[in-house]
Write a protein that binds this DNA or RNA. Structure first.
Length: 122
DNA sequence: ATTCTCACA
DNA sequence: TGTGAGTA
């Protein structure tokens, strides 16, 4: 599935489209790039061009932010995910990988809930 | 019209 | 993060 991956990585969307697709402001989208969470290309006139992959990531960032994570935590998640992908570049394992990533993210999210951990009378 | 950088409330 | 200024 390299063809599909390639197309998914083609940066052809201007920030305006990303705004509509993600319901975020240009400010936020640019800020996430500043934090190294997305890496849009800079084609004509120094304008950011996003790929479908970027949209995916930005959408996830939005979800994480929604669940109460801060930029720092999200950066950790993506850093870990990247190293995980490098570990097994020998095959296309997707099920086992997905499980690890999922549990990894859930752990990060859970570890953040220190506020309700105190009054856990149930 | 659209996006970019920078800086300040 | 929002927003306005001055560009490209």
């Amino acid at each position: 599935m390299k063809e599909k991956d390639l197309r998914r990585s083609l940066s052809v969307l201007p920030i305006g489209t990303v705004m509509k697709l993600t319901s975020l402001t240009a400010r936020q989208i640019r800020y996430y790039e500043e934090q190294g969470l997305v890496s849009p290309e800079r084609n004509d006139g120094n304008r950011r061009m996003y790929s479908l992959n970027d949209i995916d990531v930005i959408l996830e960032i939005k979800d994480y932010l929604d669940e109460g994570l801060n930029i720092a935590k999200i950066q950790e998640i993506y850093k870990k995910r990247k190293e995980d992908n490098k570990s097994n570049d020998t095959k296309e394992l997707t099920d086992q990988e997905a499980r690890k990533i999922l549990s990894d993210e859930l752990l990060n999210i859970g570890g953040l809930n220190s506020h309700d951990a105190a009054n856990n009378s149930f």
